[in-house]
Design a protein around this nucleic acid. Structure first.
Length: 467
RNA sequence: GUCCCCAUCGUCUAGUCUGGCCAAGGACACCGCCCUUUCACGGCGGCGACCGGGGUUCAAAUCCCCGUGGGGACGCCA
């Protein structure tokens, strides 16, 4: 058994979101760093809300990020017999009892308690039900929690956190239909799966003392606990579906690179001196819980964009070409990965923050784009027609159609007219790309190829003369 | 309401454990300049923070207390 076994245990009620992805990442890195194992477990005991589609989406998200699990995915629905057995045991040992209160009654009492300014807790009235009273009635199984004393959570990140047991609740272990609830299964599973480090979001800190009590009642050894600060949206507070983009795959579909996502996510709540850029390999060597902060952080799409730009800038053109293809197709451009596409990619690596941006910006490599009237009027003026034709002619005569050979052609054209290069370059750029913004002119020509360059230059001059 | 957690630039953070090296460093964003065939990239510079109040100490961003603020939890959700 390795010294470290961690897990990620999402509930399949939606896609993999940013917060869950970071929790998975931290667990994974911690396991890898310590030569341990990382398991995946699907918490699907809520049959109302769990869906197969969500399971698929979560696995897809993790796979895209490159977060690999050593065991699983385990499904709790397949482990029902175990939970029932453990619940029976607690019942038999008098550490759990049947409760016949209905959800409606509980709701009403909760409301009343809140109105009185009390903590809205179950009042434990079924604790002393006469034997047999619950027979034949719908009932749940509740944990018989201690009424006094205190439970201390020894948290790896926060130190010791003490709770008065009287603040805790007799939580429901088994629902009326016999299915187990979260706080119960999580304990049974973590214990039986040999999880050594339970590392999860801060929203679970308050559950931990109850779970510790359950560990004790069940006679399980206690794992170590660690609670990460939550990730908030830019408005503060939990990431919300409405205000923030929270799905990991949505970022994939918008042209973000997985390594950028990992890099950005790991820096939310964790730091390593002044360093900003980390490869996964490096993270697996240096990630540590000690460097995880305690305060919540905000998810900032601007910075993610910056990190993604970095990875696009430094990425392998061949790989980026492969990744770019779907984004081109989405724009109706049937492209295939190729050396040519990689060359095209190279010209945009320093000016695209996402693959989506790259696909959009590089459209004119695949089909001619005509300038809008305003741009045409400004740059494709009547006196430009002979110039474009002259340039086309000279380019046609070039022994080698290379950037170094092209440059003197434009330089000469500018010199002959006594203007700066820019005066000539912009009209050519508009003729070639339909716009005033593009990679270096000679790079663009190189990608387009001699024939297409000449074709577009003459088309532009033809338009000027004809219109 | 009760319980719990947290608190350094607008944002992510370094520094806090082991007080002095901090007139607080880096990154994103923003602004200016340079480079330049456009846009970017890059380079240089600027703006910008220790939540407040008490204490401890020769010395506090760092330790303690109290406020305040933010967040989380209080479910037959996870």
């Amino acid at each position: 058994m390795p010294d470290v076994v961690t897990r990620f245990a999402p509930s399949p009620t939606g896609y993999l979101h940013i917060g869950g992805a970071r929790t998975a990442l931290f667990n994974w890195l911690f396991a890898r760093r310590n030569g341990g194992k990382f398991l995946l477990r699907i918490e699907d005991t809520d049959q109302e809300r769990s869906t197969p589609g969500a399971v698929k989406a979560i696995l897809e998200g993790l796979t895209w990020l490159g977060i690999t699990w050593d065991e699983g995915p385990y499904f709790q629905m397949e482990r029902m017999a175990l939970y029932r057995k453990e619940a029976e045991r607690l019942l038999a040992e008098g550490r759990a009892y049947r409760c016949v209160c209905t959800p409606e009654e509980l709701d009403a009492r909760r409301e009343a308690a809140r109105a009185r300014g009390e903590k809205p807790h179950y009042d434990r009235r079924c604790r002393n039900l006469p034997p047999g009273e619950a027979e034949g009635k719908p009932s749940v199984v509740r944990f018989l929690a201690p009424l006094s004393g205190r439970t201390v959570v020894r948290d790896l990140l926060r130190g010791n956190v003490a709770y008065e047991n009287e603040q805790l609740d007799d939580l429901v272990l088994l629902r009326t239909d016999g299915s187990p609830t979260y706080n119960f299964v999580v304990v049974v599973d973590d214990a039986t799966m040999g999880i050594t480090h339970v590392l999860r979001g801060d929203d679970h800190l308050n559950n931990t003392p109850r779970q510790i009590l359950l560990y004790e009642a069940l006679g399980y050894p206690l794992p170590r606990f660690g609670h990460f600060p939550l990730i908030h949206g830019m408005e503060g507070g939990k990431l919300s579906k409405r205000q923030d983009d929270v799905s990991v795959t949505a970022y994939r579909d918008r042209g973000f690179l997985p390594e950028a996502m990992i890099n950005y996510l790991v820096r939310l709540g964790w730091g390593h001196g002044d360093q900003e850029i980390f490869s996964v390999e490096e993270l697996q060597k240096i990630f540590s819980l000690e460097s995880v902060g305690k305060s919540p952080s905000r998810f900032d799409p601007e910075k993610l964009l910056h990190v993604n730009a970095h990875y696009i800038k430094t990425g392998e053109p061949d790989r980026l070409a492969v990744l770019l293809v779907p984004f081109l197709r989405r724009r109706g451009i049937e492209a295939e990965p190729s050396a040519w596409l990689a060359k095209a990619v190279r010209t945009f690596q320093e000016r695209s923050r996402t693959l989506e941006e790259m696909a959009e910006a590089s459209e004119y490599y695949f089909r001619r784009k005509d300038p809008d009237p305003k741009t045409a009027e400004k740059f494709l003026t009547p006196e430009m027609a002979p110039l474009l034709e002259e340039i086309a002619r000279e380019l046609a005569d070039l022994p080698d159609f290379t950037p170094v050979a092209m440059e003197p052609v434009l330089l000469r054209a500018a010199e002959n007219r006594g203007v700066k290069l820019g005066k000539v370059a912009q009209p050519v750029r508009v003729a070639l790309t339909g716009g005033t913004v593009s990679p270096g002119l000679f790079e663009v020509m190189d990608v387009l190829g001699r024939d297409e360059v000449i074709r577009r230059l003459l088309h532009a001059s033809g338009t000027i003369r004809g219109g």
